[in-house]
Design a protein around this nucleic acid. Structure first.
Length: 495
RNA sequence: CGGGGCGUAGCUCAGCUUGGUAGAGCGCGUGCUUUGGGAGCACGAAGUCGCAGGUUCGAAUCCUGUCGCCCCGACCA
């Protein structure tokens, strides 16, 4: 009945029951696809999701990719408290003001009312600032290069799985340095790590740059971001890297004696990436049949579906097991779906829905020919190269080559989309028109004046996503207001 | 936080207008036959009708409140 209804509503091309075509309703497609793929489930807690094993596996893979890179750039992991006493939070004025509307408070412990409220961390600059003040005494203690994997809480009014939840998983890096040169270099270094992970791991092309004053992290000197573009033309901020200057060092007393025997405030940074990134890559890569996961992140890179045939069951099962063992030994995350309760066609649909990049079909024909049938998830049915045959003798080579091709295929598709939806304009009319039509990133020479930015926002709902400085000596005028341009800025509506 | 929509079995929904003690399809369990794109038959299990009040002899149905989810906007690292 649900299928009939879906066909009525969306036409015959509906491929998966209970998921609308992606182009028909991106929002509904997104939540349905994530849910049907069993990445998450709703909970009795408003705005808070349960991350199911398949979703957690995806997060773990992203985590590992990031963590390896953090370690390679000299960072170590640590952990800090969930609760932050109110009096501490109050010390950095801009920071407090920025986060006040979304802080959750603990006012009671057991049966006793607390004398001082505890904030549930919306981010950890405050508590980490306090601790760094204890740990840093000399220039010899610097730099401090620490990352945290934890959860934070922000009292959100409107929530969506992964993209905006009240509680979410992320990492937050916090570093302290002896000079602004060093801390600024750290901010740039980590932004580059995020860019690389987005592009090479998530297959998600992004634009990088600096946030405007109105979009900046509360309490930061500079905020840099990577921004991805979603299929509906809205931007998604996928990660940020903040130059906190000496603001937090001053507020929390991170001081050190430098080589010149002067006592100075440290220069700190923070940088974060959350499970929102998963939402971004799902929304970007998915299609009418469900998720399409990049092989580097997919919990299962390969699923083997045996095609039983009367009389050949044992030979087919034996080959399937052999293929599984060899791929596992070759470092491939592989799942043999030998469940008896579903037919092959059902399994095809289910693993496509869940985004497995490569399916190997093994039936009687394959056993006889010494080959297995390989079907790529990144290409459509019947598309050139979507279905190929791999010689069992060269199994590992063939699978690795296909997984690489799928990773690149997804990236290429997303890149093509971004390139087709990124515009440089020089007339005010065209600028406002494109923004109102929500076509993607629109880039202009920009004055970086908050008043001009506010006008653009009220007219179009679009905001600056990020921007880069104009080249030295380049004299351009702001496309929006005609004033002297300071930057090249990307505008878009955003998630 | 404002506007709109929706909460009935695991899922998608019907039933509500006109109150009389709950249904369908899919899924689930058992058995047999099947298996190269969501199999067939038989039997079976499964629902505090989101929650709390109220009206009534009687509420899934009417009234009030409340919670949650979805969409659009505002707000928002």
């Amino acid at each position: 009945m649900a299928e009939e209804r879906a066909v009525q509503e969306y036409g015959e091309e509906t491929l998966v029951k209970e998921i609308p075509p992606k182009a028909a309703d991106l929002s509904k497609w997104y939540t349905a696809a994530c849910w049907k793929a069993e990445l998450f489930d709703y909970t009795p807690v408003r705005g808070s999701i349960a991350l199911r094993p398949y979703g957690y596996a995806l997060w773990e893979n992203l985590q590992r990719q990031l963590d390896d890179r953090f370690k390679a750039t000299g960072h170590m992991n640590a952990y800090f408290p969930l609760f932050i006493p109110e009096s501490l939070l109050m010390r950095e004025a801009d920071h407090v003001e920025g986060f006040a509307p979304e802080v959750a408070w603990v006012t009671q412990g057991g049966s006793e009312k607390l004398t001082e409220r505890l904030a549930v961390r919306p981010t950890s600059e405050v508590i980490i600032g306090v601790m760094y003040a204890r740990w840093v005494k000399s220039y010899r203690d610097l730099p401090v290069l620490i990352n945290c994997w934890n959860n934070v809480v922000r009292w959100e009014k409107a929530t969506r799985p992964f993209l905006r939840t009240m509680e979410f998983l992320w990492q937050e890096g916090h570093t302290a340095h002896a000079s602004h040169e060093e801390s600024a270099a750290e901010v740039a270094r980590m932004l580059e790590v995020y860019r690389e992970v987005a592009e090479d791991v998530c297959a998600l092309p992004v634009v990088t740059g600096e946030k405007s004053a109105s979009e900046r992290f509360a309490g930061a000197l500079h905020t840099h971001s990577i921004e991805a573009l979603m299929p509906d033309g809205k931007a998604l901020q996928a990660a940020t890297s903040h130059d906190l200057g000496q603001n937090f060092a001053r507020a929390y007393g991170i001081e050190f004696v430098d080589k010149d025997q002067q006592t100075k405030h440290a220069w700190t940074t923070s940088w974060g990436l959350s499970w929102r990134m998963l939402g971004g890559l799902i929304m970007m890569h998915g299609d009418d049949r469900g998720l399409r996961l990049p092989p580097v992140l997919a919990p299962y890179q390969v699923v083997i579906v045996p095609i039983p045939k009367k009389g050949s069951e044992e030979a087919i099962a034996a080959l399937a097991r052999q293929v599984r063992e060899r791929l596992a030994k070759a470092g491939v995350r592989v799942r043999l779906d030998d469940r008896d309760e579903h037919k092959p066609g059902w399994k095809f649909s289910e693993w496509e829905l869940r985004g497995v990049p490569l399916r190997l079909e093994i039936g009687a024909r394959d056993v006889e020919s010494g080959r297995v049938t390989a079907v790529r998830r990144d290409l459509g049915k019947g598309e050139d190269g979507a279905k190929t045959e791999l010689a069992v003798a060269q199994l590992e080579l063939g699978v690795h080559a296909l997984l690489d091709a799928i990773q690149q295929g997804l990236h290429a598709q997303a890149r093509a989309f971004l390139d087709a939806h990124r515009f440089d304009v020089s007339s005010r009319e065209e600028f406002f028109d494109l923004l109102r039509r929500q076509v993607g990133f629109v880039r202009i020479p920009f004055c970086d004046d908050p008043a001009c930015e506010a006008e653009i926002k009220s007219e179009t709902s679009a905001t600056t996503r990020n921007q880069v400085p104009l080249a030295q000596g380049e004299a351009l005028t702001c496309v929006a207001c005609g004033g002297p341009a300071q930057t090249l800025a990307y505008f878009a509506r955003s998630y």
